[in-house]
Amino acid sequence: MLEVSGLAAGYRGHQVLWDVSIHVGPGEVVALLGPNGSGKSTLMNSISRLVERLAGSIVFDGVALHELPAHRLLRHGLSHVLERHRLFPYMSVLENLQLGAGPRAPRQRVREGLERAYALFPRLKERTGQMAGSLSGGEQQMCAIARGLMSAPRLLLVDEPFIGLSPQMRADVAAALERINAEGVAILMIEQNVAAALAMSRRAYVLREGRVVLEGASPELAGDDRVRQAFLGRLGPDT
């Protein structure tokens, strides 16, 4: 479904990713792990064309994403919930959600999307007229995920959806992601908490210094000491 091969990317001459290849199958949940600054967000942002690609290819259901501008991806069924939610703070929850459906979404789709969003996160319904900037951290994250689903994507990229959330909120957001996946949406997620990420995903990639150093089925990686080593720095790109 999503096939990233030999990707190199970076910021204005400062290369961050080297020869990264990952894939996500239909309906799969895949986790991206790695210490801070290892390039997880850069990888996700390269997939959604926010970061300049230096080499390699990104193909999504036969469409070469690397040839498209960022704003063209949504209509191909790919949606990205950016790190730190990135809601429009001076807009209401409703307006944020409406924007999630995309510029040319028919009214009917927006209405269905809203129903789905409110069913998934009932708290959002109570906050519908409130400015997004005034929501609590957990509500903002929920709103961002709900916004990301408004376009009815086949693949959802989520960057650290649990950061700064209370345990209760974490559980709610995790349950929502599970439900989304059960409805057939593939998910590529970044999460700091390795155990939680492995518990939620089918497969995982471990990044370190901009390279994939480890990949495999999540249940197996959960018992693999090399994951811990990658975080501690003993498993470098060369080992």
Partner: peptide, 24 residues
Amino acid sequence: TGVGRQLRAASQDAQAASTLGINA
């Protein structure tokens, strides 16, 4: 209007707007 909403979105966060299909 929808177009006004897109305009405000691009103004508040151009990058997030582009992930939502808005051409900056």
